[in-house]
Each structure stands twice: as structure tokens, then as C-alpha cells.
């Protein structure tokens, strides 16, 4: 009797096993074919030279030496950090501020929200074109507005090597704010109202409430947002590629563009693979820091 029960269980289990694998089969095949295999292959490519027709040829660390000697590569890495220094705080600050400001009853609320969300759903290629048009040095609307305020030396937003990064970053922030606004907005709704009421009784000022209650209570969300932003910035491509093509003097060049250039313009797959792993390592480090530091900083 006992035996029979156990056997029936195993059959059911076996059935579940088969069904389970059947269900995950498409994704599992895709996972092996489009994630696991490419991952190992690109790791191998880091140490190989390959013309993509014949078999890849193992060359040791040649690609690493080439890339670490390359001025442009370091410039791309440096730019990535400059982008982070501009985009991350700006996006964080503006989306959080907007979320806090709109966390109450206001007239035209749905208009604001629609306005904040709209940039994030539009194609970055299309919108980069619009911004390029706005940034035009001679016939751009931005410069003509500045001219109205009597500014004489009108900047050349996308062709000045000191300004171009900033101009591109603004577009990037503009594209992202809506997304993080929603996350913060949801986070704010989760803060218990009693905390504020208690603070009101103590007569705390609004700013104090933000610093003492809102920010600590949102720390977990802020952490998540920061990490997402870092990863977003590491992968920046479309806006830059369309607006500046990486110039002037590589001042807006990103790692993604470096990878694209070596992979699909020079067809130097080895070097592109190394660059892509550098990008991966940066993402990995940020994620790791998230896990390590989160425990200490975040109030759950």
C-alpha cells in the first residue's frame, strides 16, 4: 500500500518535472543560445583575434594591451564617469523633488504627471533629433532665447568640447526623469502618514520633514534608483550617437559607442569584446556595492 502511494507520487512528480521543463523550454533554449553561449564566447573573444570568416585565433592578452594603451578608450571610460557625475545627481534630485512636490493635492495634477511621463516613452532617436534642432548654433531656439536675454557669446552646444557632454547629459536627464518620478511617487505613497502627523504635532518645518522622514524612508528606493541610473548611463548610446557621434574630440564618446565602433566598423571583435567586458565589470561592481553598502545605509 505504502509502496503504491510512493510510486504514484513519483509518477506525479515525474509528470510535473516534464511539464515544468516543457513550460520553461522556450526560455531555456533562448537562455542557453542567446545568453550563456554568447557570454562564454565573448569571454573567449577577449583573448582572440577573429576576422569572422575563419576560426578565431587565440592571441593571449594582445587585445587587453591594445585597449589599455588606447587614448580613446580611456576617454570613453572617463566620459562615462563624467556622465554619471552629471546625470545621476541631476536625475535623482529632479525626480525626487518633483515627486515630493506633487505628493499632495494640486490643481492640474494629471497634466503634470502626463507631462513628466511623456519623454520616457518616446523614441530616443526621434527625440535626439528634436534636441539637436533645439541646440542648433545659428538657427536653434535655445540660442535665440538666450539672445533675447542679451547673451552675446552664444554657445555652440554640441560642437564645443567642453559643453557637448553637458548638452547630451541634459537630454539624457530629460529622458529619464519621468521613469524615476514614478518610482519615487510610489515610494512616497508607501510612507505611513502617521509619521508626518507626529512631526506636525512637534511643529516640524516642511524641509525638516523631508530630511528627517521622507529621505530616510525612501533610502531603499533611492538606492535602487541610483543603481539603475548608473547602469543606464553605462549603456548610453542612442542619444549620443545621433546628436554628436561621439565628438568633438571624443568628448561625448561612450563605452557603448567604442564597442559599436570596433565591433561593427572596424570588425575588431577581440577589442570590442574586451571593451564590453569592461562595461560588464563596471555594472558588476556597482551591483556588488549595492548589495554590500545597502545593508549599512538603508533603513528598512
Amino acid at each position: 500500500m505504502k509502496k503504491r502511494v510512493r510510486r504514484r507520487m513519483t509518477r506525479k512528480e515525474r509528470g510535473e518535472n516534464i511539464i515544468g521543463y516543457l513550460f520553461i523550454m522556450p526560455q531555456l533554449i533562448g537562455f542557453v543560445a542567446f545568453v550563456v553561449f554568447p557570454l562564454f564566447f565573448s569571454l573567449y573573444l577577449c583573448f582572440a583575434q577573429w576576422n569572422m570568416i575563419d576560426m578565431p585565433e587565440f592571441v593571449g592578452t594582445v587585445n587587453f594591451e591594445a585597449i589599455f594603451r588606447d587614448r580613446v578608450f580611456w576617454k570613453a571610460v572617463g566620459n562615462t564617469f563624467i556622465y554619471i557625475a552629471i546625470v545621476v545627481p541631476l536625475t535623482l534630485f529632479s525626480s525626487l523633488t518633483l515627486a515630493i512636490l506633487t505628493n499632495r493635492k494640486l490643481p492640474f495634477m494629471s497634466f503634470y504627471r502626463a507631462a513628466f511621463f511623456l519623454p520616457m516613452v518616446t523614441s530616443s532617436v526621434a527625440i535626439a533629433m528634436v534636441w539637436m534642432f533645439i541646440y542648433q548654433p545659428e538657427s536653434g531656439v535655445l540660442n535665440s532665447i538666450l539672445a533675447v536675454f542679451g547673451i552675446k557669446n552664444l554657445p555652440n552646444w554640441l560642437q564645443d568640447d567642453k559643453l557637448a557632454r553637458f548638452s547630451v547629459s541634459i537630454v539624457s536627464v530629460w529622458l529619464k526623469v519621468g521613469y524615476y518620478y514614478i518610482i519615487f511617487d510610489a515610494g512616497l505613497k508607501n510612507i505611513p502618514q502617521e509619521l508626518y502627523e507626529a512631526a506636525d504635532i512637534d511643529g516640524a518645518s516642511p524641509l525638516r520633514k523631508v530630511i528627517r522622514i521622507t529621505i530616510p524612508m525612501l533610502s531603499s528606493v533611492m538606492f535602487f534608483v541610483t543603481v539603475m541610473l548608473f547602469i543606464d548611463v553605462f549603456g548610453m548610446f542612442n542619444e549620443v550617437f545621433i546628436m554628436t557621434g561621439g565628438g568633438p574630440d571624443y568628448s561625448t564618446y561612450t563605452l557603448s559607442m567604442y564597442i559599436y565602433f570596433y565591433a561593427f566598423r572596424q570588425f575588431d571583435m577581440g577589442r570590442a569584446a574586451v571593451a564590453s567586458w569592461v562595461l560588464f565589470a563596471l555594472v558588476g561592481i556597482v551591483t556588488l556595492i549595492q548589495f554590500k553598502v545597502k545593508k549599512r545605509l538603508v533603513i528598512e
Binding site: 512528480e13 510535473e16 518535472n17 516534464i18 511539464i19 515544468g20 521543463y21 513550460f23 520553461i24 526560455q27 531555456l28 537562455f31 542567446f34 545568453v35 550563456v36 553561449f37 554568447p38 557570454l39 564566447f41 565573448s42 573573444l45 569572422m52 547602469i231 553605462f234 549603456g235 563605452l255 557603448s256 564597442i259 565591433a263 561593427f264 571583435m269 570590442a272 569584446a273 564590453s276 567586458w277 562595461l279 560588464f280 555594472v283 558588476g284 551591483t287
Partner: peptide, 30 residues
Amino acid sequence: IRFKGSKPIYGLFIATLMIPGQVTMLPLFM
């Protein structure tokens, strides 16, 4: 569904969430 290897496979899936597309882009092209 309880099937053998469910947990480790799912773990593997999640572990690859952070892999940037640029890494797999080149082999995929090939």
C-alpha cells in the same frame, strides 16, 4: 510547478539580469 532544478535554473536566470546587452551583442551577431 515543482520540478527538479527549478530553483537553480531560476537563480541562473536572475543572475543574468544585470548582463549588459553589449556583452552578448557580438557573439549574437556572429
